[in-house]
Design a protein around this nucleic acid. Structure first.
Length: 718
DNA sequence: TGGCCAATACTG
DNA sequence: CAGTAT
DNA sequence: GCCA
């Protein structure tokens, strides 16, 4: 049994470590799969292989690599196998059981053959599987089917790399960011621990350190000259980082993980030939490139957008710009918003009052819209909310505390208090400057007196007394309600019975099916997955879908569509153009049967009530061969409701609420089926009539009808 | 003081 | 119906 | 919790 508690998960430390693997072992796992073409750099010495996250173990069994940062060739063995250094980000997950013993098929004692460790470190290995009809891991699909989705050219050359750019003009920054993201890299507009590469034109280390961490020491990432990126883009592979290195200084203190091995320049020819050979065969055998493109085109907006904006010139504003220079950002979006505000007749349906056409100074904007009834600037959906995941926010220390409180109220039944905190937190997150006082905080929309006081306390004392009081019980509550199907009520009930661990629950409580599964896969389901894994899972489903009907269309929604670097679950929307008189009726049933039969879906959480409907919804657990169990959510939607459904199932939560609230202020109603007008509402906005659908087919139509600037998915992360 | 998104499904 | 989930 |  695994025994990681929720708090342990939350507190995992991360660090970097260098591991060594044998190439032959790697090559048949899914690790090096798409990196062959970038192995040999122009120096013919070491190649830096950008590899997407994967799972490893050091063999100590208490370390799990969550992210592969790079791979370097180190040595060629007599038998022509290669030693590869893998630079990974590790997560400390001790106190778990040893993973099942890995067979040692590696002759060289010093090096660790992988493959066994490449698999389910987190596999709880419980043997209660009998109860579960679907539990038959042996029947899982052939690994070959889940093979990589793309593998050509330099697409994806930055996969798994996380950049932060600084010390350059904004236009250049935007341009480079686009190039990176086009090639699957991630870019943050602020420095954080998850950043693997900092690119800068500035070479002054002291200055850099100050800019990045405000003088605090400890950069976890390499700092490279921006030229590295330029060269990478030009040549189609990542050049040796060594010669571009600004920090750490090669001679002085160079952290373990950043050293390049000295023996790498052994027989470069050999290495090169080896890989060139491999790469060639790969190309020949991989017929999936076109299927690939089709898939990419189908799967998400981000990719569609990628394809559309071609060459240089001016950096586009609309798409995938979650990199925003930290000082002067989203002028364009603001412009749009200003425009919208300036033309209330377009958006404000009930602008009954007449105002003169005065264009006051912009300080009057708020006042103006207030008189008009709707204050657009207070709706989060009116603003661009780019991805801010684990970036270092100037108010990070405040946010942390507030988030703890938020967590606490989430495990209470005090729903609205929870919402209050949620709003305040997301408001603070958008700030670019550090808060100096409670007073300053109070002026933020969403922050009231109580929270402002708490912020003041945090600023002054560095902590929050209130947090200390509720700590221990809070942890247990969080632990319990982390089980799928268990909420605050049940968690509290259990706690009042004296249970404090998951084992207590396992041993003493008879659980309904869904909760049992939630408990069984507790760790796995809390482990977020890479975008690549989402794609692999989606591909499996897509494959089956195509066997049922080629005209079916599938889109990945949820956090994946919003462009988050990792996802907690997979949301799949399925539809079919019905202009030929056919539709997707009954598809869900066939699809599920296939997925279950092939062993891909291992458990059900909730089945659709009416399989024959056009609208069906399924929730369950799936697993790639050798993969962790993942939460998967599949729905079928009528073709003409796709837009509404996309909005609903792309989220995020807060964005949707904001959008829907705005709709209701305008006497409209927005839901997963469409945007409706002429809705009659009674007391407490209770819906009386359905209203008429005025938009539903595309997201754009709905945004437009609402008077909201069309937000690409990446900007729906408030 | 009352609203804070909306709709649906499932379980005890 | 209350609780949970999406 | 926050806000009108």
């Amino acid at each position: 049994m695994t025994n990681i508690t929720a708090q342990r998960l939350a507190r995992r430390s991360t660090f970097y470590k260098r591991l060594r693997y044998v190439e032959s072992a790697l090559s048949d796992g899914h690790v090096l799969k798409r990196s062959h073409s970038t192995v040999v750099n122009r120096h013919e010495l070491t190649g830096t292989l950008p590899v997407k996250r994967s799972r490893y173990s050091t063999g100590d069994s208490d370390l799990v690599a969550s992210q592969v940062i790079d791979v370097k060739l180190e040595e060629v063995e007599p038998d022509n196998s290669m030693i590869v250094g893998v630079n990974v980000k590790l997560e400390d997950v001790k106190e778990r059981d040893k993973p099942r013993q890995q067979q040692i098929k590696e002759p060289d004692p010093g090096y660790q053959s992988d493959e066994s460790t490449d698999t389910l470190i987190l596999d709880p290995l419980d043997h209660e599987a009998a109860e579960n009809v679907l539990d038959s891991p042996k029947d899982r699909i052939n690994p070959a089917k889940a093979e990589p989705l793309r593998s050509q050219s330099d697409v994806g050359m930055f996969h798994g790399l996380h950049f932060h750019l600084l010390g350059m003009p904004r236009r250049r920054l935007n341009l480079l960011s686009e190039r990176i993201m086009e090639r699957d890299g991630a870019v943050s507009h602020a420095y954080s621990n998850s950043v693997t590469h900092i690119l800068s034109d500035i070479h002054d280390v002291a200055k850099l350190q100050f800019m990045l961490t405000r003088g605090k020491i400890g950069l976890n990432a390499r700092v490279l000259d921006t030229k590295w990126l330029a060269d990478a883009l030009q040549h189609g592979f990542c050049p040796d980082e060594q010669i571009y290195l600004i920090y750490p200084k090669v001679t002085a203190e160079s952290p373990e993980s950043l050293k390049t091995s000295e023996n790498t320049r052994k027989s470069p020819k050999q290495l090169r030939n080896h890989f060139i050979k491999r790469r060639k065969s790969r190309y020949e055998s991989s017929s999936d490139t076109e299927k690939d493109d089709k898939y990419r085109a189908m799967e998400s907006d981000s990719i569609e957008l990628d394809a559309s904006d071609e060459e240089d010139g001016v950096p586009e504003i609309e798409s995938k710009n979650h990199t925003i220079a930290s000082s002067t950002q989203h002028d364009d979006l603001n412009k749009i918003i200003e425009q919208v505000k300036a033309q209330p007749e377009l958006i404000d349906l009930d602008a009954s009052e007449d105002d003169g056409p005065e264009q006051k100074e912009k300080d009057d904007n708020a006042e103006m819209s207030r008189r008009r009834g709707i204050q657009y600037e207070k709706f989060l959906c009116m603003k661009s909310n780019p991805i801010m995941t684990d970036t270092v926010n100037p108010n990070e220390f405040i946010i942390e505390k507030l988030e703890e409180l938020h967590e606490f109220y989430k495990s209470t039944n005090d729903h609205w208090r929870e919402v209050g905190y949620q709003k305040a937190i997301s408001a603070i997150k958008t700030l670019q400057t550090p808060l100096r006082s409670a007073d300053e905080a109070r002026r933020i929309f969403g922050v009231g007196g109580r929270i402002a006081d708490k912020i003041g306390e945090i600023i002054n004392t560095g902590q929050l007394q209130k947090l200390k009081n509720l700590d221990s019980e809070n942890e247990v509550l969080k632990l319990f309600s982390g089980i799928y199907g268990v909420g605050p009520s049940l968690a509290r009930r259990w706690m009042s019975k004296g249970y404090t661990t998951l084992d207590d629950i396992r041993n003493n409580v008879t659980l309904p099916e869904s909760q049992r599964i939630g408990l069984k896969y507790y760790d796995e389901l809390h482990n977020r997955m890479s975008r690549e894994e989402v794609e692999q899972i989606a591909q499996v489903v897509k494959n089956e879908l195509m066997k049922i009907d080629e005209k079916l269309e599938m889109t990945i929604g949820g956090s994946y569509r919003r462009g988050l670097p990792d996802c907690g679950d997979v949301d799949l929307l399925i539809t079919r153009n019905d202009e030929d008189g056919k539709n997707h009726q009954g598809v869900m049933k066939q699809l599920l049967k296939r997925l279950v039969d092939m062993g891909f879906i291992t458990n059900h959480l909730a089945l659709p009530g009416q399989f024959e409907d056009l609208r069906t919804r399924y929730m369950g657990i799936c697993a790639l061969p050798n993969g962790l169990h993942r939460h998967i959510d599949i729905l079928t939607v009528p073709y003409n409701e796709m837009g509404a459904c996309l909005i609903a199932y792309t989220g995020n939560d807060i964005f949707n609420r904001s959008l829907r609230l705005l709709a209701s202020k305008k006497k409209l109603r927005l839901n997963q089926m469409g945007l409706f007008a002429e809705v009659l509402r009674g007391a407490s906005r209770a819906k009386i009539t359905e209203g008429n659908c005025i938009a539903s087919k595309t997201e754009e139509a709905i945004f437009e009808a609402l008077g909201v600037p069309c937000r690409p998915p990446h900007e729906r992360n408030p």
